[in-house]
Write a protein that binds this DNA or RNA. Sequence first.
DNA 1: GTAATATAAATTGTATACAATTTTAACACT
DNA 2: AGTGTTAAAATTGTATACAATTTATATTAC
Lengths: 219, 219
Amino acid sequence: MLDLDFLNNNYQDNRPASEIVAESIAIDILTGVLRPGQRIIEHTLCDKYAMSRTPIRGILNQLSSFGLIRLIPNRGAFVTGVTERDIDDFFYMKSLLYPQCVKWAIERITTEEMAMLEETFDFMEFYTATEDFEKMKKINHGFEAIIYNASHNAELEKTLLRYDFFIRYANINIKYPLNYLPAVLEEHRAIFMAFKDKKPDAGYEAAQIHAYKSMLRRK
Amino acid sequence: MLDLDFLNNNYQDNRPASEIVAESIAIDILTGVLRPGQRIIEHTLCDKYAMSRTPIRGILNQLSSFGLIRLIPNRGAFVTGVTERDIDDFFYMKSLLYPQCVKWAIERITTEEMAMLEETFDFMEFYTATEDFEKMKKINHGFEAIIYNASHNAELEKTLLRYDFFIRYANINIKYPLNYLPAVLEEHRAIFMAFKDKKPDAGYEAAQIHAYKSMLRRK
DNA sequence: GTAATATAAATTGTATACAATTTTAACACT
DNA sequence: AGTGTTAAAATTGTATACAATTTATATTAC
């Protein structure tokens, strides 16, 4: 599967080669090296990544399910465009689903998952204090990924991860002011406290507020 | 791509063989012939459908992206379970996204798409009058599919189609009373009128009501 | 008899070869 | 010159063969 952490490319690469290549192609699409509408010839990818067509075709299937390319039978793969309006839409769609995801997660989270969430939140406090922006971005995604998973609804988890994928892409070049960090931490703290207190509705509201303010910060 | 209309298996089959096989496997999963957690051996599918492993693997990739199976590297494909709670969740998630989808669709629909919607609604009135339940089910999905598409957000469209896929599966054995038809028609009429009047907020509210009542009808 | 290890079988991952289809180019015709 | 047709090239779809990995079985040690 496509690992969403790839934009922070400082991970251990003991994963399947096909995953690494899939990410590389995804980056090429998102950064405009491969342009919207452009046709992708399988053989050129084979040459570039020194792979045969079989795994390349599997990768193209994955990218297709991720919405980055469009596969037309007997015609090939074509790059999908992502507009600014699409990104706005993703923010909005996330603001609709995320609060309910938090609510379900609070109702359904396991002891192990809760322990992970607590540990992650500790790191968030630490990195906010040390003003480590890159680490913070990474840990924020980890925090939300745990919540998505704790909703115990695989489809909802995949949906939100997909939205984040595009949202993160949109934010890749945006440099938020450093004083956003404490504000984001407090929004996350409100969500975290709802988990601690096992209050689903409080979590729902806190998530709504966070999603709304995230949209405002984008502007 | 996986065609969502396959449960009404009265279509012309001039589509790629891989699509037909994908649908057949999907039906086996949804009807319990292939049980949750069960491992799927590629070779058995090859024998059953008289295909080599290459296209079968492509199909497994599609089913994976659709959430029907889970692919584990070097281990194979495992059938995903869909619980009653999952179906409830899908209803709820749809009720969160569908109203916004209607709102965007009203803002963004093209003249051609609007013409299709009008034609489809005419059929809905006709089939409601003739009490043709099966035709009605089909046309209802067509009506919503046009709206999803008119939102001009490919991800939202795919998300809602996926939810419908599972919701329809859950409803496959349920026989709703015939007097539901006029009620559903009136809910759809309210949505349709919002399109005619180009009133996004009215559409949003009508869609909310429809989604809510759909949840109640399931009980 | 049980557990650990080694071996064999089965299964998945990849590469290559060939078939079917589409795209490109060349050519004749008006 | 422009259009329609035909042939060649390129590209995608499928089948098969082999490599890598996992799973199942058998053997040995205790």
